[in-house]
Design a binder for these strands. Structure first.
Lengths: 130, 130
DNA sequence: AGATCAGTTGACGTTAACGTAAATGTAACG
DNA sequence: CGTTACATTTACGTTAACGTCAACTGATCT
């Protein structure tokens, strides 16, 4: 259950990803399952990393960004420095996301304008049709 | 100035796009410049279409979506029906954009949470360092 | 043994919107 | 005639994150 290692299919079920995804993440050095012969065994550490990977994706980080962040945690050294660095990266990402939201809001407003124009134009057709 | 046709470089300057982009749009049947020998001459109609293309892109429509919308206007037939159809498409797109905005807001909120956590963790380090 | 299941490793395919390089053309200027 | 500027076509390259085969391997069940 809360077993120490999980097979690839157990991982897929637990995190709702495909085997291809897990193998892909391994090839990108985001995960490091141990090998029992040819098969992959995912450890507690892999599960923790995968959780962070999926969270990072929700934040819009690229896998490469995520890999670097994870590497930060793996290197020995001051935990504080790493945390601060991660914090800064996250803040920058937040700024990007807020900028993106501003653009989106602009586009939404512009599109709403267009829709209003369209509505009145359609209303014009209706009147002319009498 | 407000000449009837424009060269490709004039178009590029006027709309801030590259020649490659204009040729690409022609190949995708979004624009139909006339040919003077081998060279392209962009008409008033092309300019109107390009304006709509760029606006559509700001709204997040794909070029294929945009092509279909433009075709709608070009086909003879009831202007009203076309307008209504376009209106509906735009409304759907607006709904998508608002959904996307909601997701983005969620992610922003979650990331802000993480940042708050990070701040307190960093503060913890500072205290422990005394 | 035969069949079935879970897993593995390549390796090419996908999508969008162009970028970029190569080889060539054509037109005006001096 | 040579150069310079602007243009053209063709075609392969790019980026991200996997999807989708194909062809095996190993273990287990009957």
């Amino acid at each position: 259950m809360t077993n120490d290692v999980m097979s690839i299919s157990e991982m897929c079920a637990a995190f709702d990803v495909t085997p291809r995804t897990l193998r892909f993440y391994e090839s990108k050095e985001l995960l490091f399952p141990i090998r029992q012969g040819t098969k992959r065994l995912f450890t507690r550490r892999d599960r923790a990393r995968l959780k962070l990977i999926l969270r990072g994706k929700r934040f819009g980080f690229s896998l490469e960004d995520i890999r670097q962040l994870l590497d930060l945690y793996d290197r020995d050294g001051s935990q504080e420095v790493q945390l601060i660095r991660t914090y800064e990266i996250a803040r920058k990402r937040l700024a990007q996301m807020e900028a993106q939201r501003a653009e989106l809001d602009e586009a939404i407003a512009e599109l709403k304008d267009q829709l209003a124009w369209g509505e009145s134009a359609i209303a014009g057709f209706r009147k002319a049709a009498e």
